[in-house]
Design a protein around this nucleic acid. Structure first.
Lengths: 328, 328
DNA sequence: TTGTACGCGTTATCAA
DNA sequence: TTGATAACGCGTACAA
C-alpha cells in the first residue's frame, strides 16, 4: 500500500495524499477527511526508508556496545533507546564485541544504513583503530562516547569520574577504621587504570601509599575468589578490600564467608559499578553508583542537541556516588 | 558519495559502477580494476536503504523485547543479533515494555521501517492485543515468538518446556529427601502458570499434592525475602522451596541465612532461569537452565529459513535442564 | 562490454 | 486547492 494506491482510490493525486499524511495546509477539509478515512481503512503506514531517501534524514541512530548482555551497557542503552524514540529516532543496536576490528565492522554497518548519529557505549571504544575509522568515514555526524573521550570535532564524551569515585571509597573505608586497604582489579582497560589512580590518590591522602597492595587478576568469573585468596595468603593483615567490579567483590566475599572471616568487622569489602550482584549478595555489597542511566540520558540529549545544530561541551563529567550497604 | 559521483570520476556510467559493486559479470577487467580503486579511494559504501527500496528487501529485522536490561531477554537478543548479522541482516532492537499498547506502538515502528521479519522475545507478547495487531498488519512477514506461541500462519513459536523443568526440580528435591516442598511465585504471566503446573505435576507424581504450599508474591526485588518469611511463619515444617525466579531464591536464601537455617540440610532451595544471580549467591543456587541462547539460535534460524521460503514446524519445544549447585 | 531509461515510495517545487 | 514533475540513491531490463 503506497500513497499512489491511496491516491487512486480517492481519485486524487499522490501529492495531495502526501500533504495529508504530513499535516500540511492547503487541502480542502472535505478531501482531507475522505483521504484520512481511506488511510485508516487500509491502515497505510509511510515507508520511513523511502522518506529518508528524499528528506536526507533516515531518523536512524546507531548504538554500539561491546555486548548487550553486559548489564552496564544495557542499562545505558535502554535509556538511550527510549529517549531517542521519543524524538522519533529509531535505534540500531549492535554487539560490536571487544576487538577493534569488530567495532570497525559494526561502524561500517551503521555507515551503510546512513545513521544520523552514533552512540558508543563503554571506554573500550576509546582506541586508535576506532578513532581512525571515525575520522575517515564518520566526520559529518555526531558521535557520543559514553564513558570515554576522543579528540575529534564531532565526538562528544560523557565521562564518569571513576578516579574521584574510588578515592571516595578509600575515604569511606578509612573512616570505618581500616588502614590496610587492598585493591583487586583486572588491569588493561582505561577504566581500570582510572580506578587504580583513584585508589592511589585515596591512600596518598592519608599517607598510606606505602601500604599499597594491588592484586591483578584475570577477567574470568572466579577472579574475585582467587584474587582474594591470593591476597590473604600474602597479606593476612588486610582489613579492607576494594574490588574493581561488583562481581569480583561477590567472589571475594564468597572466599571470606568460606573462611569464616567477618564482614565488615574483620575485613570490609567494596565493589564498583552498582550492578545487580551487589544487592543480592550476602552480605550486600557497598558499591559505587556509576550513573549509567544518567550517562545514557546525557548521551541521548547531547546527540539530539547536536543533531539540532546546538553545540554542547565536548566533554561532560558525571560524578559517581557511594551506595553503602552491609559489606562495609 | 553516490555511484553517480564515482561514475563521473571514472568516466563511465552509473550502471557499470553498480555492476562492480555487486560483483556482476560483463565488465572489462580493466574497467573493473580502475573503478574498484576509486571506490576504495573515496571509501564509498552503498546506501542500504536506497538499495532496499529498489530490491524490495530492506535486510532489516525487528527484535522486540519488554526490556533490554532483563538478562533473559538480552541473552536471547544477543544471539539473535549476532546470528542475523552473519546473514547480512541488521537488527532494530526496541524496548516494547510490558503494556500491550506499547508493544503495538513498537510493532508500528517496525512496520514503518519495512522490516522483513520480527522476533518477539518473551511470553508477554503472547496476548490478544499483539495478536490482533500482527493479524492486521504483519501477515506477510515471518514472526518468531520466543517462549510463546500464537496461532497465526506466519508466526513461529519456540517454547521452553517449563512444565517439565519445574517437575524435574520437584523430583530433584524429592530425591534429596525433601517431602514438604513449597513454591514461591509471582503469578500472572503465562510462564508463571506453566511453572506452577510443573510444580503440581511433580507433587502429584509422589502423591504429595495435598502438601502443596504456594506463596504468591509481587514483582518487587524483596519478594523472595518477604515471601520466604511469610512461608516459614505459616509452614515452619517446610524443607524445600522452589522459587519461580532466581532473584526470588536470592531473597529467600538471604532470609534463611539471617535465620541461621542451614541450606540445603534444613531447607533446600531452587531457583529457575539460570540467571547470573545463581552463581554469585552464597550458597550458590540450583536452578533451571532455561536455554536462552539455544532459544535465540533456534529463533534466528527459523526466521532465516522462513525468509528463504523454507517452512519449519510452527511450534518447537526445547527442554530445560537442571543446574545443580550448593543450595540443594 | 557499456550506457540509457525506468522504477522503488516518498517529498518538494512549481505551475495550474 | 490541487496536480505534474523532478529528485533522493540504487538496481536492472533492454538497447547499443
Amino acid at each position: 500500500m503506497t500513497i499512489y494506491d491511496i491516491a487512486e482510490k480517492a481519485g486524487v493525486s499522490a501529492s495531495t495524499v502526501s500533504r495529508i499524511i504530513n499535516n500540511k495546509p492547503g487541502v480542502k477539509a472535505e478531501t482531507r477527511e475522505k483521504i484520512k478515512k481511506l488511510l485508516e481503512e487500509y491502515n497505510y503506514t509511510p515507508d520511513e526508508n523511502a522518506r529518508g531517501l528524499v528528506k536526507k534524514a533516515t531518523k536512524l541512530i546507531g548504538i554500539l556496545l561491546a555486548d548487550i548482555r553486559n548489564d552496564h551497557h544495557s542499562a545505558l542503552a535502554y535509556v538511550v533507546e527510549r529517549k531517542l524514540r521519543e524524538y522519533g529516532y529509531c535505534s540500531i543496536i549492535l554487539n560490536a564485541g571487544y576487538e577493534p576490528e569488530m567495532m570497525v565492522e559494526s561502524i561500517q554497518v551503521l555507515e551503510q544504513r546512513k545513521v544520523e548519529g552514533i552512540i558508543l557505549v563503554g571506554s573500550t571504544f576509546q582506541n586508535a583503530v576506532v578513532e581512525k575509522k571515525l575520522k575517515e568515514s564518520m566526520l559529518n555526524i555526531p558521535v557520543v562516547l559514553a564513558n570515554g573521550h576522543l579528540d575529534l570535532p564531532n565526538v562528544y564524551g560523557i565521562l564518569v569520574d571513576e578516579i574521584s569515585g574510588v578515592r571516595q571509597l578509600v575515604e569511606l573505608l578509612y573512616a570505618k577504621g581500616k588502614r590496610n586497604i587492598a585493591f583487586i582489579a583486572s588491569l588493561g582497560t582505561l577504566s581500570s587504570y582510572r580506578k587504580l589512580q583513584g585508589y592511589e590518590e585515596g591512600l596518598k591522602k592519608y599517607n598510606l601509599l606505602e601500604q599499597k597492595v594491588i592484586i591483578e587478576v584475570g577477567m574470568e568469573k572466579e577472579a574475585g575468589y582467587t584474587g582474594c585468596k591470593k591476597l590473604l595468603e600474602r597479606y593476612p593483615y588486610i582489613d579492607g578490600i576494594i574490588c574493581a567490579e561488583d562481581l569480583m567483590a561477590v567472589g571475594a566475599i564468597r572466599f571470606l564467608n568460606e573462611s569464616n572471616i567477618k564482614i565488615p568487622e574483620q575485613i570490609a569489602v567494596s565493589g564498583i559499578n552498582n550492578s545487580i550482584y551487589g544487592e543480592s549478595c550476602y552480605p550486600s555489597i557497598t558499591t559505587l553508583d556509576n550513573k549509567m542511566p544518567e550517562t545514557g540520558l546525557m548521551a541521548a540529549e547531547t546527540l539530539i542537541e547536536s543533531l539540532n545544530g546546538i553545540d554542547r561541551p565536548h566533554k561532560i563529567m558525571l560524578f559517581p556516588t557511594i551506595i553503602e550497604r552491609e559489606s562495609t
